[in-house]
Each structure stands twice: as structure tokens, then as C-alpha cells.
Design a protein around this nucleic acid. Structure first.
Lengths: 226, 226
DNA sequence: TATTTTTTGTGATTTACATCACATTATATT
DNA sequence: AATATAATGTGATGTAAATCACAAAAAATA
């Protein structure tokens, strides 16, 4: 862990770029950087929290305790703020964040964060926009979950990895089959079967965690139609 | 539709209560009140929007187009802001809001709203808190949807009507079976059957739309255990 | 290298729930 | 009041996907 100089940071968030010099100094004073290896918990549901996390680089999964077990809600890719909704209201985390790939994260003291929201409307506005985007994304995820069947949801998630996370139609899945199943809201066995199915149809190529999308169009079709 | 005087309004939001006199005047100038009867659309997905809606009284459903059909995402009870996430980013509504009970709603010009966010950090902070709460609620709804089965979800929704909407364990459902099914993410037929089942078990009493919860404890148990 | 542990694949079986089909009851319209 | 239209209940049937069961492969550990 080291104290960061936010002023010279090249990985500033869009929100942080609207801060004044003096405000960035304030941010830098109460901002501590840390590295997380895959599997390491960045913050944990139920624990007290007095920080907002700015995810500079890497990929995390957000998990939440459900009635039966812990569930992966979504992946979140840097750059992004984590734990804004979970820390703003009360001080207790309402979900966990766990590194899925190597991450660098800045821990910002919540009081400093609130102070910045207060003194800089542009900063505040950017944070608010991010919250709004999250809510809309969440609605979309939810309807898709209800109305599409597993085949479509799996296809959708493979496309998200390709288009939104790795920007390539060839990539290594950062999750094992269990976590992938969790993300798609299905069982491990079904994921196995459907991946085999997609491969048999020559829509993708699967080799362990390595995925290669062969027929983007058909995959998108499956993702849309269910 | 009439122009409202926000200064003397007794139904101010918590956020609005942090506004100065002059700011309330500003709000009042670009704030138009309207009444919506059940079934009437307050705003519509896909339409251009230049307003934030403050729901003063009443109950609405938020619906969103899914891959197969329009889906009820959630109910929202007054007092509450609607369309913040849908209007803040771009100008197009990303979901619809439809009155489920008689509603009064204030249409606030988006520029005025943004201006208030800018000049009054306390106001801005309250709005942000509401966004955060929404996001957390949405996560909860989603895990419940995935991990519980219909019986549990129906029970949960019956309890929400009792505890959060009507504050009574006897109430008239504001939705028909179709919409209730939609809210619970199941089919109309299943809702019919399970309501009958709950009645047979003497957990609730059903007479058309009138619901009476007889055994709160067991209903909560079903809601939790799935 | 050998051994344990974890991860993955695949068949067989079960099940919750959707869908279909139709009767019945309410509600709206003429 | 008569008719049309919509909302609801309920049985029969079908099915997507969970669960169970176990083998095979891969990864971690000794």
C-alpha cells in the first residue's frame, strides 16, 4: 500500500479529471493505493467500510448473499468506482468485491469523498451519472435474466467478454465454470453442456478457459432471441 | 396541469427540504403538477424526456422492454423521484412509468434540476442517496429472483404490499393477476394456483383482489426459504 | 514423481413451472 | 337486460434446466 499522488496520476477517473489542483491534493492525501491478486477480496459484505474504492485497473466480481448462497451479481471492469452505493448510506458493505484479475485500487476516505462531492458539482455530477448508468444496466440484466433462457444468457455473457471486457473475440475466461454458471445464473453442468453445444455448432471454439468466437453473428442472434 | 408553489408544498421530498427559499422559487417556476389515473402513462420508454418526475402521491409501475415482451421491473411508491437514471444521461427514457393507483406527479425541468444539483450539495447528496438505495434494492430483488422459487417470490411480494406499500396486512391488490405474475416473474396461471395454495394453507385469505394475511410468520418463512 | 484436491464433462433422472386448453366469472359496452 | 370482452381458475401436458452420479482431466500439494 502506498499513498498516491492523484495530481500526476494518469489513470484518473472522468470524475476526478474535473477536480481542481487543490482538490486533487486533498484527494491524494486520503487516497491509498493497493494491488489485489485474483481471488483476493477488496471489500466484504457485512464489514464496516469507510472508503470508496476507485478501481484503476483490473477486473472484479461483485457478489451478494442471497437466500440460498452467495451470488455473483456482475463483473466490473476498471476504470470504475466501487462501493459508492454500498458505502454512502450506512457504513456497512451491502455486497463484496473480489478481484478476478490483478487489480489496482485506490481507497478513498469516505469523508474526503463526500467533501469533494460537496465542493465540486462537476465531480458530483459525474458520480451521479455513473450511478444512473449502473441502475439502467442492472434493469437490463434483470429483464434478460427473466425473459431469455440459459442458452441466450450464456451467449450474451460470452459477447460481453469479447466486446466490453477484452475487445477481442478471442480471450481467456477469467472465471472457472462454476463462477461462469453463477454469472449466467445457471448450473455448472448446464454451462458445460451449452459451451459444448456452441462449439459443436462451430459458433465458438472452446479449449479449457480459452474462448474464440467463430461466428459472431449467430452468437448475437442466440443472445437476442433467447 | 398547474404550476406549483414548491415553497408551500407540504409534500416536499427530503431532498427538496434542503433547498433555500430562492431555490424553491426556482423549482416552483419550472415545476408542473399533474394527476394520473390508474393505467395512465407518466412517461414512456423510447420517448424524449426533458423532465425529472417527482411522484408526490400514488403508486406506479416501472416497465421495461425485454427481449420477448414488456416487463414490470418494480413498483415505486410516493414520495420518490422517477426517471433520474433515465433522464440524466441522455434525453431518452430507458423505461416507462405507469400509474397503478391515482398519482400526483411534479414535472421538473431537467435543466432546473441540474442547476439545483449544482448549487445545492445537500440536495444533490439526497438524490445520490436515493440512487444508491435503488441500486442496492435492485441487487436484492435480482438475487431473490434467481435463488428463490415462485412460491417464495410471491410470498415476498405479498409482504411488500403489506409492509411497505399499504402498512396493513389487509389490502386490495392494485394489479390484476397478469401484472402480479409479471412482477413476480412467473405466469398468470402459476400465480392463481399458488394464491389458492396459500389460501388452502390458511396463510392468506383471497377474495378477488382483496388479500388478507392470516399467518404472517409462515408467509415470511416461505418468503425467505423460497 | 506420486498423491491428493479441485475442476470439468456427460449421461440419467427429476421437477418446477410454462404452456395449452377450456370453463367460469367478472366487467364493460351496446 | 343482453351481449361482448376481459380477467380468472384449473386440469392436462410438455420441457428447460436442475440435480444426481460418476468418470476423466487438470491443478495443487506432498
Amino acid at each position: 500500500m502506498k499513498n498516491a499522488s492523484c495530481t500526476v496520476c494518469m489513470l484518473k477517473s472522468k470524475a476526478a479529471r474535473s477536480l481542481q489542483h487543490s482538490e486533487l491534493d486533498l484527494l491524494g492525501e486520503s487516497c491509498v493505493q493497493a494491488v489485489f491478486e485474483p481471488g483476493e477480496t477488496i471489500f466484504k459484505q457485512g464489514a464496516l467500510s469507510s472508503n470508496i474504492i476507485y478501481l484503476q485497473t483490473g477486473l472484479v466480481k461483485l457478489t451478494i448473499k442471497g437466500p440460498q448462497r452467495v451470488q455473483i451479481m456482475r463483473l466490473k471492469k476498471a476504470p470504475s468506482y466501487l462501493g459508492v452505493p454500498t458505502t454512502m448510506g450506512d457504513k456497512i458493505n451491502h455486497y463484496s468485491a473480489i478481484a478476478v484479475e490483478r487489480c489496482t485500487a485506490c481507497f478513498i476516505d469516505i469523508n474526503t469523498f463526500k467533501e469533494l462531492l460537496k465542493v465540486n458539482p462537476a465531480f458530483s455530477y459525474e458520480i451521479m451519472l455513473e450511478l444512473c448508468r449502473n441502475e439502467l444496466e442492472q434493469y437490463q440484466r434483470c429483464v434478460k435474466l427473466v425473459q431469455n433462457q440459459v442458452y441466450g444468457r450464456l451467449a450474451a455473457n460470452l459477447l460481453i467478454f469479447a466486446n466490453e471486457i477484452y475487445n477481442s473475440n478471442e480471450y481467456d475466461l477469467p472465471l472457472n465454470r462454476n463462477d461462469l454458471a453463477d454469472l449466467v445464473c445457471t448450473s455448472r453442468e448446464t454451462v458445460s453442456r451449452l459451451l459444448a453445444e456452441l462449439a459443436k455448432e462451430s459458433i465458438i471454439e472452446v479449449e479449457g478457459k480459452h474462448i474464440r468466437i467463430l461466428d459472431n453473428e449467430r452468437l448475437e442472434n442466440i443472445s437476442e432471441k433467447g
